[in-house]
Write a protein that binds this DNA or RNA. Sequence first.
DNA 1: GCAGATAATTATAATGATTATAAATTTATA
DNA 2: TATAAATTTATAATCATTATAATTATCTGC
Lengths: 157, 157
Amino acid sequence: METTILLDSLRKAGLRITPQRQAICELLATSHDHPTATMIYETLKPRFPSLSLATVYNTLEVLVRLGAVNVLGNAGDGMAHYDADTDPHINLACVSCHKIVDFPSQYVQFLDEEISAASGYRVLGARVLYYGLCPECQQKTSIARRETDYDHRRDNA
Amino acid sequence: METTILLDSLRKAGLRITPQRQAICELLATSHDHPTATMIYETLKPRFPSLSLATVYNTLEVLVRLGAVNVLGNAGDGMAHYDADTDPHINLACVSCHKIVDFPSQYVQFLDEEISAASGYRVLGARVLYYGLCPECQQKTSIARRETDYDHRRDNA
DNA sequence: GCAGATAATTATAATGATTATAAATTTATA
DNA sequence: TATAAATTTATAATCATTATAATTATCTGC
């Protein structure tokens, strides 16, 4: 759907559209979770047996630098998640299952305008990341209670 | 100023107020930049020659788990920045000089309410981080232009 | 105040995501 | 098709963060 947007931004920057880059862009544009470099690598590995993690990181870095992709702080799992949707929106991260979903809000665009207008910053991007417990994990933890408290490993970063 | 809030949250959790923890809380509450673990460590080292980085990380982890401190994704320098202000507000990170400043916005609290009400998530915290070029760095880069483009090392995470 | 139990700090090693490097491969162009 | 430039790959290095185990400090009841 917006795969072409990503590819176009590569083209416009004079970069080559390799099969690997194409696949990565496609994955980023179509997947509705917000994959990490490793997730992308493992998803694509069967189709590109020679694929290297470095290529995934390189491509992601290029896309981020071009402003076509945003990086979300980790969701409690110590890895960077990537988001091909650069329109103003909110990400909801579950600290238990580490999923990240989108949440459409009418207020975010106001934020953007407010900041650009009042701060003096040249805004290049944003990460609006709320974290908490998703409905499913609320049930799980309300059952397991204090027992299997979620692991706090890599909770920071 | 809000040092006591941090200390109280430790007390309420039944944790001990050690000199190290007190100093870390004080630093978090009073410094207006948003320090990293290493910055805290190096600031306090002269006063606590035996201080260990592990203590800083431990204390920060405790404060984060208690919800008294938020973790901001890195500002282009590959390190976690900590924010003792948990009231809804926006952080502006400069990708060039890696400073993070606060920006008061009237819309953030609406966001909070909207999400808590409509998403089904139990919201535990948020990182509203906009990144771009601060006014000072805009001048610098407009002078240096394409030459000394800022280093993209650790731009992700 | 003091001993015993518990919690916290410290020093150090281990982990693991991300980056850097250099060689091999592919792509675009003439 | 040959050449040059860009990209991919494999691998090693980096470095923030965690885990571990031993030492030290803190609290509670006497």
